[in-house]
Design a binder for these strands. Sequence first.
DNA 1: CTGAAAGCGCTTACAG
DNA 2: CTGAAAGCGCTTACAG
Lengths: 353, 353
Amino acid sequence: MASIKDVAAEAGVSVATVSRVLNGHPSVSPDARTRVLAAVEALGYRPNAVARSLRTAQTRTLGLVISDVLNPYFTELARSVEEEARALGYSVIIGNADERPDLQDHHVTTLLDRRIDGLLVSPTDGGSPRMLDAARAGTPMVFVDRWIPGVDVPVVRSDGRAAVRDLVAHLHGLGHRRLAIIAGPAATTTGRERVDAFREALGAYGLPLPDAYIGQGDFQAGSGRRVTEGFLDLPEPPEVVFAADNLMALGALDAVRARGMRVPDDIALAAFDDIRWFVHTDPPITAIAQPTGDLGRAAVRALVDRIEGGAGESVTLPARLVVRRSCGEAASPHDPSPHDPSPSPSPVRRSTP
Amino acid sequence: MASIKDVAAEAGVSVATVSRVLNGHPSVSPDARTRVLAAVEALGYRPNAVARSLRTAQTRTLGLVISDVLNPYFTELARSVEEEARALGYSVIIGNADERPDLQDHHVTTLLDRRIDGLLVSPTDGGSPRMLDAARAGTPMVFVDRWIPGVDVPVVRSDGRAAVRDLVAHLHGLGHRRLAIIAGPAATTTGRERVDAFREALGAYGLPLPDAYIGQGDFQAGSGRRVTEGFLDLPEPPEVVFAADNLMALGALDAVRARGMRVPDDIALAAFDDIRWFVHTDPPITAIAQPTGDLGRAAVRALVDRIEGGAGESVTLPARLVVRRSCGEAASPHDPSPHDPSPSPSPVRRSTP
DNA sequence: CTGAAAGCGCTTACAG
DNA sequence: CTGAAAGCGCTTACAG
């Protein structure tokens, strides 16, 4: 592969001059510039980013460590992150932790070894030593979606509290009183917060959230299935299962189906994190939708701000409830939720007779 | 951040010795080794991968350019690629082309500039000049899923021919005679092959595939919707729509639903590329499943083989038909397809009454 | 077993 | 405007 030396030789100038034209430095004679450009063209020369990074001490690369690529929520997040980063002149390297702290650590380490300019992370756990070190050592960092309390790092996330309240209001209005939740790992903020928000919203209606109605999941489908089976085995099973993410909702659906039961007739189901397929599941699933694309973009802007020496503001965006049919029929033919600006068909429109 | 010099000073040895112990070189005295290790520990030293790459001319990194991260098929492919690469000591950088040739080019260029050791690509189009150049220039490369004819690069893919034949047999057995397809871009091999396989399979039953029944899609949901609307507007609409990927099937579902029609009663639907949600859609969707994980792993092995000077064998794995209910009820209570080793519930088991 | 030195491909003060 | 030179952080023949 041609190097800058080859280009210099071909153009009859020094490597310094080649470097200057490549970097748009103003003090280069028009003649030199054209000769260099011609040489670049002739040799198909492309600057070696590795060498450039070593010299300039910046890689123009962002690391993104997500908890699970197979979760459409994170996939969409990753896509918007890459998009915004590209717009700002950065590349992004994604590390998938698969909800495993050890894998998360592996990726953080690898990314740091590559000297990425900044790190975006949605922590799988309470924070590995490596990540905490990085934060303390001053690596520009921003948390997205999930975060670690007590660490001085901006966090870009969405607040589902209001949406969860809307959901509970919706469920209560439908006559449901025994509501259960499949929680995410207690080590994650989203794992804890969604349970807290749910409990709080239930409290407003004088409803309890007994321990038996809190199933411990891990944000993966398998746990959703197991927890739901446990709920169904209870002497008094819940009337509603609220899954704290879409994959656990998938597992819940599997469990209900395996018993030959039906949603919402036998048990209602709702999920955190909306996905396109929820419109077409049987029945369409009521879900809380995050402004995923906005989160990804805001996170990148905050991180780039930090990289450039800024403070990197934290951002919290609201989530919203999207009512469909998985919790039962609405009382009126119109959407009872004033918080649903969804352009999707009215929830009472049935896709099955 | 501590450099190798700092470690050498701390340990009281030369940087050469530090480098040797870091790289497991045998000729280092036990004493020097322990001192170096202690210094590394004390300083929290981590080798700079950028510098190492510049010096060794290898990055231990693979590039993966996929057509669309939002497509679960590619997400799963990416995951298995990363997994196998990690097992072999490589990192992978993913570039998402979003089915756009210009974006694909951007990522190929960026990846090459970073001097990745090898490139795995599922081309969005007939092959950009940059990619063709890279292949010709000897960059170790392997095509996954989609490929470009006439380029001397191994391809790891799955052959859906037999599964498509099974699908057509299934449809024919159900009494369907007017079968349509939503094709992928003609510039992609999978876009062309799936139509060819479909036409061929129809031919075996003496069924035609008229132009009006070939809709041109782009592997995105929107095109699936538009094409399906076109089909439904035909004086003689098809009885079956076969979507060449899962996202276009989603669009088709949207279109059918928007008309207040039902699958399979009003029109049957089948898709290429199975996803977990297809079990829970209304109705469960009959699909052709690729051995995605195996493809990803085989592709990495082929690429690493190339990188290490091997030939990098091409691999073709069979896809299989998974019958569900979206094409109508099977005649017997048992799965009529002998090609479906799926552990999923029997296709005639109804999840809705 | 160990260290001094060269060099990977760049960028960038410093002189001119 | 231009070039020679230093240096980024490593690895690795070459001598000893």
